[in-house]
Design a protein around this nucleic acid. Structure first.
Lengths: 156, 156
DNA sequence: TTGATTCCCATAAAATCCCATGCTATACCA
DNA sequence: TGGTATAGCATGGGATTTTATGGGAATCAA
C-alpha cells in the first residue's frame, strides 16, 4: 500500500496560541516510515515555511563531506544559511509540531496554516498568501506553456 | 526518531563571568548519541569559534593518512593548524561548557554567544558579528545561485 | 593563602507531554 | 439502502518535565 515517501496534497489546519499545528497524517506516516524527523526553515524566496525530512539534509551533509570541502568558502556560506536556519520539529503523540515565532512571522501565519505537498519537500503558507501564490503560479504556467494544455486534451 | 547527528538551528545563550555557556540541548543530544565530545577551535577565516565532534576530527585524520593525492598539501597544513588549536570541551551536569579566554577573544564574545548549526560542524559568534555575517551571506548566496537551495529540479 | 576551576543546588521560564472532547470518514449490519 | 457503530484525527487546556542560568561550596594549583 501507500509506502511512498512523497509529500502530496493540500491540507489546512489550525495553529493554536502555543504555535501548535497538526502535521497532516499522511506526512506523519512518511516520517514514521523513514524513521526520520521533519526539518523546517524559512523559504529563501517566498513568504512561507519550507519543510523536508532530516534524511534529505543528511544527504546534503554527506555530499559536502565526500567532496572534501571541509574548508571551502562557498560551501561554508551555503551551509550557514541552510543548517543555521533549519530546525528539527518532532511531532508529539497527538501528531502536532510547535512552529517557532521566527517561522510563523516569516510566513505571516497567525491562526491557520496551509500545508502544500511538493514531493520531497512541502511548504506551509498562510491562507491569504497561498491564495495569491496559487493564482500567480497558475497564470505563469498558462503564459509559459499554453501548448501543454492544447496537446494533452483528454488526460486531465 | 531523531537519531540524526546534524547540528542545526541558531541558538542564543548567555556567557557568564566564568565563561560558562549552555550548549544547545539539541547539540548535547547528538553528543550523547555518538558518545563523543565537542571540540572547539578558532575559525581560520572568521572571527568566530568553530566546533565539531571529536569523531569528525578522527575521520579527517584518517583521510589524511589514507589518501595521498586526495588532500593537497595546503589542506594538510590547514588541518594541522586546526589540530594544534583544537581542544575538547566536555559539558557538565547542567549542560554547560567553559569557553577559554583565547576563544572568546578571537570571537569577540563578551556576555552573549550565538550558536549556528552547520551540519557536521557549528560555529559560535558574538551577536553583533553574526548579524553582519548573516546579512553578507544572504546577499552573496542569493546573488550567486539561489537555485542551489535544495531545489533539485524545477519544483519551486 | 589566593586565585582559579569544577561541582552541586536552586529557581524561573519555557518546552513537552498527557488527557479529554468533538468531528469526520469509513466500516458494518440490518 | 440507510442507519449506526467505530476508529482515527484535529484541537483545547492543564499538568509535568527540561532547560537556561545564577550563586555558592568544594577542589585544585601555585
Amino acid at each position: 500500500m501507500g509506502s511512498s515517501s512523497l509529500f502530496l496534497d493540500t491540507v489546512t489546519n489550525k495553529v493554536d496560541a502555543k504555535g501548535r499545528v497538526s502535521l497532516p497524517s499522511d506526512y506523519r506516516a512518511i516520517l514514521k516510515n523513514l524513521s526520520t524527523d521533519v526539518v523546517c526553515y524559512r523559504s529563501l524566496t517566498s513568504p512561507c515555511i519550507e519543510g523536508c525530512t532530516e534524511d534529505l539534509l543528511e544527504k546534503l551533509a554527506a555530499n559536502m563531506e565526500s567532496s572534501m570541502d571541509f574548508f571551502s568558502n562557498e560551501q561554508d556560506e551555503l551551509t550557514n544559511l541552510i543548517f543555521g536556519d533549519a530546525k528539527r520539529f518532532p511531532f508529539d503523540s497527538t501528531g502536532r509540531i510547535v512552529l517557532s515565532e521566527k517561522l510563523l512571522k516569516h510566513a505571516q501565519i497567525s491562526d491557520t496554516a496551509v500545508f502544500i505537498g511538493k514531493g520531497r519537500k512541502f511548504q506551509i503558507w498562510s491562507p491569504e498568501n497561498w491564495e495569491k501564490e496559487e493564482q500567480r503560479i497558475r497564470q505563469a504556467v498558462l503564459q509559459k506553456r499554453p501548448q501543454l494544455f492544447l496537446n494533452n486534451k483528454g488526460d486531465n
